[in-house]
């Protein structure tokens, strides 16, 4: 089944690179949505059916960590798989995100890393 993906990053170039990488994976990607910060991301989640969220951490208005926190508190979005793609180096912050069930990809990323992370996540979903 095609998976709908929301990409949240304040850089349009980065969103385009992530989208291109996703298309290269050969996975069945359905609708894709984009948002420039956490606030817009939450709005996009409200308006659309989304199966997976790919989110940056450092963004204006609302950062990725806060967006993830709010997603997890809302029953409608609490179980959506999350991949964080960021330059973030703080181990404490990464640990907090892992506790919320997010996978992590370091920037700069390779498209192969995105594919491998997606494969792992989708495989885990199948076995649930």
């Amino acid at each position: 089944m095609a998976i709908n993906i929301l990409i949240v990053d304040d850089s349009a170039v980065m969103r385009a690179m992530i989208l291109k990488s996703l298309r290269m994976t050969g996975l069945d990607i359905g609708e894709t949505y984009q948002a420039g910060n956490g606030q817009e991301g939450l709005e996009a989640l409200n308006d659309n059916w989304v199966d997976m969220v790919i989110v940056d951490i450092n963004m204006p208005v609302m950062n990725g960590e806060e967006m993830i926190g709010q997603m997890r508190e809302n029953p409608a979005t609490a179980d959506i798989p999350i991949v964080v793609i960021s330059t973030e180096g703080s181990e404490a912050r990464l640990e907090r995100l892992r506790e919320k069930g997010a996978a992590f990809i370091h920037k700069p990323f390779t498209p192969e890393t995105i594919r491998d992370t997606m494969r792992t996540m989708l495989h885990l979903e199948e076995n649930d």
């Binding site: 291109k20 298309r23 290269m24 994976t25 050969g26 390779t110 498209p111 192969e112 594919r115």
Partner: peptide
């Protein structure tokens, strides 16, 4: 190599 594969929308299966 990675640049050319990116341009051609091709991923490495293994390296």
């Amino acid at each position: 190599l990675k640049k050319i594969l990116w341009k051609n929308n091709i991923l490495l299966e293994t390296e």
